[in-house]
Amino acid sequence: MTTATTSPAETGQTPPEVRKRSPLAALGGQNLSLIGALVVVLGLFGALNENYLSLSNLQVIAEAATITGLLAIVQTVVIICGGLDISVGSQVGVASVVSAMVFTGTGTGSGAFVGTLAAVGTGVLVGALNGLVIVYGRVNPTIATLAGLAAYKGLAQLLSDGRAQGYVLDDPVFVFLGRGKIAGLPVMVWILVVVAIAVHVMLRYTDIGRNLYAIGGNDTAARLAGIGINKYLVAVYALIGVVAAVAGILLTARTGSGQPVSGSEGLELKAITAAALGGCALKGGKGGVGGTLLAVALLGALENGLTVEGINTFWQNVAQGALLVAAVVIQQRRNGERAVGLPH
């Protein structure tokens, strides 16, 4: 005996699997919280200083956040697959110095292209080196990239003798990268947008992205599924090197010379803080570009507001550290993880 069934179409109901989520639900609680915090920060400093929300100052915030945003995006990728890179700031310094020194040595004309190419090549090498040490040296990512933080910083200082190198503001390419605009927005911001879209598409709509989430979620299961974890990890760290090189080139273009330390020191903390605030699980397997960019905007707005109000820059470091701790605590609570050393 058969039982008559009524299809969803006949009842006028939409099957649960095809129901569309509301825009707010699609954003997610994490992103809504970041948007709320960003609105509060903008409103607070806007009330304190009438110039804070001016178009010129908002562009300053966007430009200042570009380099942090680039590094935070690739930090998101490496955290998703269960890794970490503390050396990104030093990689930016190396790339900045190399781009300026090669440009100066080559001269104008093709100098900007050659300097950019040299910086990107250097980024690939130092990034891949991190990955090789982690994978084949079996070194914890935190330790390996902490060593890279010191080593690459020292390399940048050795190459530059500890001083800013070259002068690039007589070259139209560097001027365009550092100070040019397209459709009213700084070129630096457009570069960030392009990188963000490319990484988002990779993570959400390709097998590469699905495999990265699988590696971070359960590396044993990923290995049994035939995913080449070692190749993926080396490639991810090489990608970090490339994007760090782009950030270094933009730093050179923005400041007018290669910077071994100034402008790049502390970027690793900002990048990790933005990724954590944006919803990346530090154990891997979770995160996305959208949340990270919102966190970058929040950090940039907060930093600029403190500067505009003349608050000691040391407090900015305090605020960044507090935000990182807060982000991790929230993650631990949401995941239901017990406190270290305490019973459930």
Rank of each mutant, 00 (worst) to 15 (best):
R338S: 15
A144V: 08
R21Q: 13
V78I: 15
V124C: 08
Q91H: 06
A144C: 09
I249C: 05
D207F: 04
V133W: 08
G180W: 04
A150K: 09
L24Q: 12
M202K: 05
A275K: 04
L185I: 09
V243M: 07
V94P: 00
F113I: 13
T104S: 14
V139C: 08
G256R: 13
L299P: 01
K286F: 10
A118D: 00
I143L: 11
V189C: 03
A196Y: 08
A245L: 13
G115V: 03
T11C: 02
K20Q: 15
L27I: 01
H200I: 12
T206A: 03
L282R: 00
T307I: 15
T292S: 11
G310R: 11
A9S: 14
V18K: 11
G123C: 09
L58P: 06
G178C: 06
F103E: 00
A198S: 11
Y136Q: 06
G28W: 01
L324W: 05
Y237H: 12
A276T: 14
L192K: 07
V194W: 00
Y237S: 10
F176D: 00
V102Y: 01
M202P: 00
L71D: 01
G109E: 10
L239A: 05
L277V: 09
R210S: 04
N218G: 02
A276W: 06
S54C: 04
G123N: 08
N140M: 05
V201F: 14
N218H: 13
G178I: 04
S160C: 02
I182D: 05
L24W: 14
I249R: 02
E63S: 12
S99H: 02
Q320T: 15
D161S: 12
G121Q: 03
A301W: 04
